[in-house]
Write a protein that binds this DNA or RNA. Structure first.
Length: 431
RNA sequence: GUGGGUGUAGCUCAGUUGGUUAGAGCGCUAGGUUGUGGCCCUUGAGGCCGUGGGUUCGAGUCCCAUCACCCACCCCA
């Protein structure tokens, strides 16, 4: 009678109610902390013109060159499911002339991103990020502010065991100078590196720093690092960022070898890693993008931001914080006899009407089974409708945590709800 | 795109050198308590042993193929 089961697409997954609770907690923390720093919320579409990403992220990046979900719509336009959020926010900033409001444009966002990579621990093809962007200033204190916000969200979620790596990759000119020096350093001994590194040397030389081979690491020991090649202005900027971070009491580790994968980054770049994760241990990453607005057709405007991966944040959260333990204030209505069903339904509506969460049995099960269900429902109380008490117009309220019970007159509940019709029904002795 | 691993109940997993009705724990159902959850005891339901082919008297077990998932590489959140 049924065909083959349809399953979720490779690399995607359902966020089931238990996990959704953790989601809501994270997003409420992000929302609250963003509000503390006076960031508003923005919600761009999840698909955009393909060109936004090819121009923004860069044709040569892995994300654009081989990981995008790109398709044509019926108007033969090339569209792409967003692989990241910053490009969309910048597009929106330009499109609505948000810079004309004066001041710095500060926003946060959250939602699904799409990259066609091979899934593994902490990596999905549809994954979720929240991100924070500040467009319109190159002031170093803004760098420190947004890094602080990044850090604070994680501490608020109880995540420790984190490592904040920081670097400045300068502006494109200094990167070119470094690239040259790096090549000159490596070239004479290129043959001694592993196969992967030899390949990286031609595609993305700085990635060689990430190689896990000990031999390669040894040979890289004295290699030129980008931080030594940045301009005096970039250096000055970076030093100021460090000062502000210290003022904010934020501990960081300068990682002179850190590079970032998206082409638009300039100057300050950072990454936060968790030791609780597997191979994909980076839970957030960000940096300045002082040339991006201009690249996407706007006035030259500096910007900075970061994105964090929800799935990885959850993996990094301590187990205790992940599972909610307490009961939610509310009432599960259990009945001793089917003839109380109508009353139970009315009561549930009245309780919900006055803001008390209420639930009841829909399967016609025994009182014992209903009590069991009440226990599992996670609600704090059961209200039992049984013969003796109902004769007096009362129900039994049982606290599911300490098992204490008392009687309550149903009319009192109906009075609170403000509807007299229910109370009348009781007085007529329907129960 | 490249490697390695794993597919048996809703979940986590056992399953002997191929042998007859495929098991456990947890979860779920009903009862022990004719008016009350958690602990305990009993009971019941639930499996094309991923799929297709092959070897064999006989396959969850061996062989081939295929699909799916997981982990890692690459790269990234």
């Amino acid at each position: 009678m049924s065909g083959e089961k349809i399953k979720a697409i490779y690399g995607t997954k359902d966020i089931l109610p238990d996990e959704a609770v953790i989601w809501q907690r994270i997003l409420s923390v992000v929302s609250r902390m963003a509000s503390n720093y006076n960031y508003g919320f923005i919600n761009p579409p999840i698909f955009e013109a393909t060109e936004l990403f090819t121009r923004g992220i860069g044709e040569s990046s892995d994300v654009v060159s081989k990981e995008m979900y790109t398709f044509r719509d019926k108007g033969d336009r090339s569209l792409t499911l967003r692989p990241e959020g910053t490009a969309s926010v910048v597009r929106s900033y330009i499109e609505h002339s948000l810079g004309a409001r004066g001041g710095v444009f500060k926003v946060w966002y959250a939602g699904p991103m799409f990259r066609q990579e091979r899934p593994q621990a902490g990596r999905y093809r549809q994954f979720y990020q929240f991100g924070i962007e500040a467009i319109g200033s190159s002031d170093p204190s803004l760098d420190a502010e947004i890094i602080s916000l990044n850090r604070s969200i994680f501490s608020e979620l109880g995540i420790d065991d984190l490592e904040l790596s920081l670097n400045s990759i300068g502006m494109p000119g200094s990167r070119e100078a470094h690239r040259q020096a790096f090549s000159d350093f490596i070239n004479p001994m290129l043959g001694e590196f592993c196969g992967d590194c030899q390949r990286r040397f031609s595609t993305n030389p700085l990635r060689m720093f990430d190689c896990k081979e000990a031999g390669c690491q040894d040979r890289l020991a004295g290699a030129p690092v980008i931080l030594d090649y940045i301009s005096a202005e970039d250096r000055e900027h970076f030093d100021r960022v460090l000062e502000f971070l210290e003022l904010a009491g934020i501990t960081y580790k300068i990682d002179k070898r850190m590079v970032r994968g998206l082409d638009y980054y300039t100057r300050t770049a950072w990454e936060i890693k968790s030791k609780r994760l597997g191979s994909q241990d980076s839970i957030s990453g960000g940096g300045r993008y002082d040339l991006l607005v201009e690249q996407l057709g706007g006035q030259p405007t500096p910007g900075i931001g970061f994105a964090a991966g929800m799935e990885r944040v959850i993996l990094a959260m301590p187990d205790g914080a992940a599972g909610g333990s307490g009961r939610k204030t509310g009432v599960y209505i259990a009945i001793r006899h089917e003839r109380f069903k109508t009353e139970a339904f009315k009561l549930s509506q009245a309780l919900r009407g006055i803001g008390v969460p209420a639930d009841l049995d829909y399967l016609g099960r025994s009182l014992k089974a209903q009590m069991k269900q009440a226990d599992r429902s996670g609600l704090s109380h059961t209200m039992i409708l049984a013969e003796d008490e109902m004769d007096r117009g009362a129900g039994i309220v049982r606290n599911l945590e300490n098992s204490k019970q008392f009687e309550i007159l149903l009319v009192d509940i109906y009075k609170m709800s403000g509807g007299h019709q229910f109370g009348e029904a009781i007085e007529k002795g329907e129960g």
